[in-house]
Amino acid sequence: MTVSVIRFGGSNCDRDAVAALEHLDIDAEIVWHEDGLPEGTTGIVLPGGFSYGDYLRAGAIAAHSPILEEVREAAKNGVPVLGVCNGAQVGCESGLTDGVFTTNESARFQCEHVYLRVERDDTPWTAGYETGDVIEIPIAHGEGRYEIDDDRLTQLETDGRVLFRYCDADGTLSAEANPNGSKHNVAGVLGDHETVAVMMPHPERATLPDVGGTDGQAILRGFERVDRQ
């Protein structure tokens, strides 16, 4: 299996994603968006960064890159897709997932470690945790506030498509624990299929043991889980 990490102009977490996946013995390669999706791609990462310099709106231009057509097609066929940070913005902009990630409540860029509560443990991305587990993962974004209209949010929650919410160290949801003002503390959601997920926090930054925590490893192992299915 080989996971394709899609590099757009301005992606900057592409190498980090490859390093983290390879640390977990998951083969991964960087794919330049103009070169199209390689034959036999078994997973797709839309990495963080500032695709197209965030001009227009974060993720908006990359979402119209022709490779996104191929990504949507692959997603439909069950290939696992994980969008992280700017990749999550691209995921929402391209219709892979519902809602949008927009300017933080603080109106500033925030780089810090946050706690996430795992909302369900029966998806490929969260099977390594138990529902209610609290994990520590870094964020680094200026536009990470999850927004969606109330009806669709209710639907999303009823469908169980909220993967992670920002919380305190003990798992309590609160305004203080919500770093960017996301609606209902939402930090990551599933698409139409449980094999498609986007999240603002960076699991690849919480994977290599020599630079801190390893709480993000189980999320990246989602690629293995789908592969085995």
Partner: peptide
Amino acid sequence: VYRQYDHEVGVRTS
């Protein structure tokens, strides 16, 4: 100040 700087990209910052 440093919260506004991405100080972890590159996964080298220990």
